[in-house]
Structures are given as structure tokens and as C-alpha cells.
């Protein structure tokens, strides 16, 4: 392996005509010279949360606003309708585990059972208004497979966690000091166009995505 490494590195340096690489700082300085500060990105006029929900809809997700976290179980019940008939997996996130879920529901926090859950509920680390995306950072409170195994995916996001652009979430992860193993930027339910270029939802991941936006005041 180390020979392969030195072979490839030697070829690269030969191609670039040098024996030692420039320092990372030198490289970053060159990048700053080449790439202007202003990043070309979509712009919009409407308030951030309106852009966010408009893009959610464009991605075939559905959404509802709730006034406070206490209203989350009720909003989930409204969406699922027959919640008592389902196996519901809930991420072990403090925002969710501390809620008063209806006792009639079959609720699990144990990822061992995740493959059998119909519906999963998770909490987003952030939302991106540009694209209507949800940012899920993996960890004990947010298992990554929970975002993909169930048929229905319900994601809770605090309105004040919505940012304009993807770049802003990088600042948050940098502030954490490290990246989680997996960051899922999720925009709508799973889809495929591999059969005759016809769009079909629910390829391998969730068939539907429902977003509960919790108002900031709470």
C-alpha cells in the first residue's frame, strides 16, 4: 500500500514538476486569489421560511407548522391518521423522547428494529432555504439509517434552525470541532427516473417526507 502511495505521489509530483508539495496555507492563498468571495447562488425575495416551504413542496415533501414542541405528537397523529396501526420508530433525540406520545401507539427507539418500522421520526440539525433541504447529522440522537429504512419519514425542524444556504451549515459543523460520520442533506422523498425516465417516488428510501416546522417562540 505504501509503495502504491509513493508511486502515485511521485507521478503526481512529476506531472506537476516539483518534488515537494506547497503547504496547505500556500494552496489556500492561491484558491482565494482565483475564486471571488461572492458565491453565485440562487436569490429570492420572500421570507426565508416561505422559500423553505416552497422548495419543500417542489421536492414533493409535505409540511405543517406547529406552535411548540408539545404539539408535535398531535401533528404526527394528524399526518398519520391511523398512527395506532403502525410501528413508529423515534430517534433518541431529547426533543422527541421527552414528549408525551399517545400510549396506544407502538413506539420504538431501538435501532435493532428499524427495518420493520413503517414510519420514523427524526430531528433535523438544520434546514436550507435555498433548496428546501433538511440537514441530518448522524449520532446517538440521529441514526442515519432511520432516514432511509421506513416508508414514511417525518422530520422535525425548529424554524430558527433554517439557514439560507448550504455554506452556513459548514460553519456549524466547524464549530462542533468535527464532522459527524454522516451528514444527510435530504430534499424530498426517495425517487428514481431509471424506468423510461419517468419519475417515481419511493425508490429505496422513504416514499414520503413530512416536515414539522416548530415555531421559534417556543
Amino acid at each position: 500500500m505504501s509503495t502504491a502511495r509513493s508511486t502515485v505521489m511521485a507521478r503526481i509530483r512529476e506531472a506537476l514538476g516539483r518534488t515537494q508539495p506547497p503547504s496547505l496555507a500556500e494552496a489556500r492563498a492561491d484558491l482565494a486569489r482565483r475564486v471571488p468571495d461572492a458565491i453565485p447562488r440562487p436569490i429570492w425575495d420572500e421570507p426565508q421560511v416561505e422559500r423553505f416551504v416552497a422548495r419543500l413542496e417542489a421536492s414533493a415533501a409535505t409540511w405543517a407548522r406547529v406552535n411548540g414542541r408539545a404539539d408535535i405528537p398531535g401533528a404526527v397523529g394528524d399526518y398519520l391518521q391511523d398512527a395506532a396501526e403502525e410501528l413508529i420508530g423515534i430517534a433518541a433525540h431529547p426533543l422527541l423522547t421527552e414528549l408525551a406520545w399517545p400510549p396506544a401507539w407502538s413506539i420504538s427507539h431501538d435501532m435493532e428494529n428499524a427495518a420493520s418500522w413503517h414510519t420514523a421520526i427524526a430531528v433535523a440539525r438544520a434546514g436550507i432555504a435555498e433548496t428546501g433541504s433538511l440537514v441530518m447529522g448522524s449520532g446517538p440522537a440521529s441514526p442515519t439509517t432511520l432516514n432511509f429504512l421506513p416508508d414514511r419519514h417525518i422530520v422535525v425542524i425548529a424554524a430558527d434552525e433554517i439557514v439560507d444556504y448550504m455554506e452556513e451549515i459548514w460553519e456549524r459543523f466547524r464549530a462542533d470541532g468535527s464532522m459527524p460520520r454522516t451528514i444527510n442533506v435530504i430534499t424530498g422523498p426517495s425517487r428514481t427516473a431509471d424506468v423510461e425516465q419517468t419519475l417515481q417516488l419511493g425508490a429505496h428510501g422513504p416514499r414520503s417526507l413530512h416536515v414539522l416546522i416548530v415555531n421559534s417562540a417556543s
Partner: peptide, 24 residues
């Protein structure tokens, strides 16, 4: 590629699962 603003899933993977991770 597909004329999307972003694909349904854009994923950033950094290393192996962390000690406390429930999956990965």
C-alpha cells in the same frame, strides 16, 4: 446532470462510525 437544484440525497461521509453511533 438531472436539472435538479439538488438531488434528493446529498450525503457527506467522514470516516467510520463513531463510538457512540447507533449505526454505520
Amino acid at each position: 446532470a438531472t436539472g435538479q437544484q439538488i438531488t434528493a440525497y446529498t450525503t457527506f461521509i467522514t470516516g467510520a462510525r463513531r463510538e457512540a453511533d447507533p449505526d454505520g
